[in-house]
Amino acid sequence: MQATTVRFQPYWITQKLKLDTNIITNNTSVLEISKFRCYISNIAFKKNNVVVWQEPNSYHLIDANDTSSYSIKLNMPATLIFDQIHFNIGIDSTTNVSGAMGGDLDPTKGMYWAWNSGYINFKLEGSSPLCTTHNKRFQYHIGGFSIPFNTLQQVDLPVHHTTNINIAIQLDQMVAQIDLEHQNSIMQPGRAAVEFSKKIAGIFRIKL
């Protein structure tokens, strides 16, 4: 066995994400991100599109409030040969209907909806002058697992055999796809959450 570390690092363009800090965006306006969390689950490695190893009980909360959550240690066979890493962004439907769970899935993590059972897969909050809301806030709580509003996203990225895999989460690319002026809040499962979720997978990229 060998410990491989997968590190998920949120970025704004080339800068590592800093919460509650002014960010000058492309269009020269100022934006702040106050909260960023997402679930990474079902981490696996593939060779020629076939799964060669998967992490058991694979549920990880990435939380910008706790940068130690960015690094995930995987105990996998040292001899493993793979060319892709696979993971889900969010929590699968079975886990969503399986009752109370501890660890990163504990409902104290602020990633569970009490009034419409289910995990929040991806949470992004902040402020932008483009938002006409109170304190110019935007809040995206993206979740929902029931058809037709399933927001779980699957990601496959090419990787070489290495002990450290760095994955960038390009939040600038997410914000660039959102109409902050007209849609500054998504707080429940539904069509808007599904549309948002489809844009999430693309912001996860291998960082060389």
Binding site: V97, S98, G99, A100, Y112, A114, W115, S117, G118
Partner: peptide, 16 residues
Amino acid sequence: GAVNHLDMQALAPISH
């Protein structure tokens, strides 16, 4: 039917 599991039911009145 907002809550899908007995374990999670108590969260609803707790947080409302």
